[in-house]
Each structure stands twice: as C-alpha cells, then as structure tokens.
C-alpha cells in the first residue's frame, strides 16, 4: 500500500491510500488525518478522511503546496509504524428492513433497476448467493460496520462491514440514480452500506429505514444539540432488525424527545480483530446488550 499523491487544483491535496477498499487502507487514512489534525499545520482548512483515501484543503496564500505535500509524506511514514488502535464508540442502529416506504419508492423507480421484477432486497440477496431475503438481512445485521467516511451530503455515513473479504456483500448501484430516496433509508452500493441523512436523489439499493435521526440542522433532537451531525469516521455501527410496532414506538420516542441511541465507548484493536473476527464481533454485539 503505497500512497499516491495528487494536487486537486491549487488548493487541495488528494491522497489515495489504496485503489481497493480494505480496513487497513481505512485505518491508514484515519491515522494520517488524525496526525494532520494534531499537527495543526498553518493554512490547512479542511481535513477529510475517506474510505481508502483522504483529502486536505489548504490556503495557498498561507502554505505552499509543495511544503504541505512534504509534511503529509512525513506523516504517512510515521503512520506506517503506529499500531492500529482506535478509541471509538459502538452504536446500536435499529432498522426496519423491507419497510413500506422504501418499498413504495423502489417500485416508483423500477425501470432504473437491474431487476425490475423484484425488490432491491430480492436482487441483493440473490446475487450474493443467499437462499432468502431473511438470510440476507441476517447477514447485514449480524456483524458490525465501521463508519469509513461521512459525506456525499451532510452527515451521511458510509459503512464497511467487519467481516473477511469472502463474506463482504457487494451490490451495484441503480443503473440510473433515483430522484428520490426517503430520509433515513438504509442503502447499499458497491461494498458500502449507508444511511441517507436527508431526502433526495440516490443510487444505492434500498433495504430498510431507521427511526433514529442522524442529522438535524435545527438541533432540536436531544442528542444532536451539541452538534447537528451524529456520525464520525471511525464509529462502529451495529444494525438491529426491528418490526413495524417497534419502529412506530421509536418514532413516538423521537417525537417526544425521549429517544437516546445506545452508545458505548470502545478501544478497537485491528490485531485483536484479525485474530478472531467472529468472536471479536460477538463481544462488540454484547456490549450493546439489547433485546
């Protein structure tokens, strides 16, 4: 994994850690961007980690592109030698899979889909070799996910599942993007799951919906009063399948300001994770201690 550096115009440096997605590439991106933040480099205005790359925006009137490039390369060398630990949080996200709202939306845009005869879940289950939609949903919520990027639009998390490559779910995006996606849709494209933070256009397959607000520009949601965006790169998410009754109940809790997401602090170790992925994930699930 040798990073590739490129200038994005005269005020960005774009760094591709790896062409392909992996937890290692994400960890390297996150540790370098954390180091850039700690270094408080004069003239740096945006520090954006992504799945397997990162981007720095800078003010060329305050730091020269070549000086900044040299600093980033030094920080990359330092990141190589660091061990992969991460102080983070584990978050329970309830999901009503196969819900009526995303289903109604996907039917409206059927002609833009690879398989107009079924639903997005039918299609994703079939091309990933699952016997049933239920088994596919089980795979989606059995193992946790790393938030490897926040963006596209405000507060939208991209998530990469914590399983070995053989078990990664892969689904293409819609043939042509939809012009509408319900807010809080749980989607899937490539090897990433996502939660649509706002209603709008989208190309990811739609699997379900969460009642849990994740972006609130008015900051009226109790747990978004400090900051309007819930997720950060490096968060660990565990989806939990809920039914209609539970979904409606959560909605009432949200409306009444009583809902608080279940969140635990956690020290993640990449080495310990690789030693026994399944056991490690079971331990993460037990921390949330719900159901």
């Amino acid at each position: 994994m040798t990073a590739r550096y490129s200038f994005g115009g005269d005020d960005h440096i774009f760094v591709e850690i790896d062409e392909q997605m992996s937890l290692e590439a994400f960890f390297k991106s996150l540790s370098i961007t954390n180091a850039v933040r700690d270094a408080q480099i004069e003239g740096v205005t945006e520090i954006c980690p992504a799945n397997a790359s990162y981007q720095i925006k800078f003010d060329p009137d305050r730091i020269s592109a070549t000086d900044l490039l040299a600093e980033l390369q030094q920080l990359e060398a330092a990141a190589e030698s660091s061990d992969s630990h991460l102080k983070t949080r584990v978050i329970d996200v309830p999901v009503y899979y196969n819900d009526p709202w995303t289903r109604a939306t996907l039917m409206r845009f059927r002609e833009r889909h690879q398989d107009p005869t079924g639903t997005d879940l039918d299609y994703a289950a079939r091309i990933n070799g699952f016997d049933s939609v239920a088994a596919f949903i089980q795979a989606h919520c059995a193992n946790p996910w790393f938030v490897t990027m926040v963006g596209f639009v405000a507060g939208l998390p991209f998530m990469f599942q914590m399983v070995d490559r053989a078990r990664q779910i892969e689904v293409p995006k819609y043939l042509r993007p939809r012009t509408d996606t319900p807010k809080l849709t749980v989607g899937y494209g490539g090897c990433f799951s996502c939660i649509y933070s706002v209603r709008g256009a989208g190309g990811y397959q739609m699997f379900g919906i969460t009642p849990m607000p994740i972006y609130d520009p008015e900051q009226s949601t109790s747990y978004l009063q400090d900051f309007m965006v819930f997720f950060n790169p490096g968060d660990i998410v565990k989806f939990r399948s809920i039914n209609r009754e539970q979904y409606d109940d959560y909605l009432i809790q949200v409306e009444q300001g009583r809902y608080e997401p279940i969140v635990r602090s956690f020290n993640f170790s990449l080495n310990a994770y690789y030693q026994n992925i399944d056991q490690y994930n079971v331990n993460i699930g037990e921390m949330l201690n719900v159901n």
Binding site: D11, E16, D18, E19, N51, Q55, G151, F158, G190
Partner: peptide
Amino acid sequence: PFGAGSDPSNIVDSCYPY
C-alpha cells in the same frame, strides 16, 4: 479494484475536491 463498482468510471468512494 474491490469495492469500486463495475463501471470503468467507478472508484472506491473518495472525497471530491471543490
């Protein structure tokens, strides 16, 4: 590459500079 998607114009989702 793994995670990029099948179209030759696809990459593993990255940041977009202004």
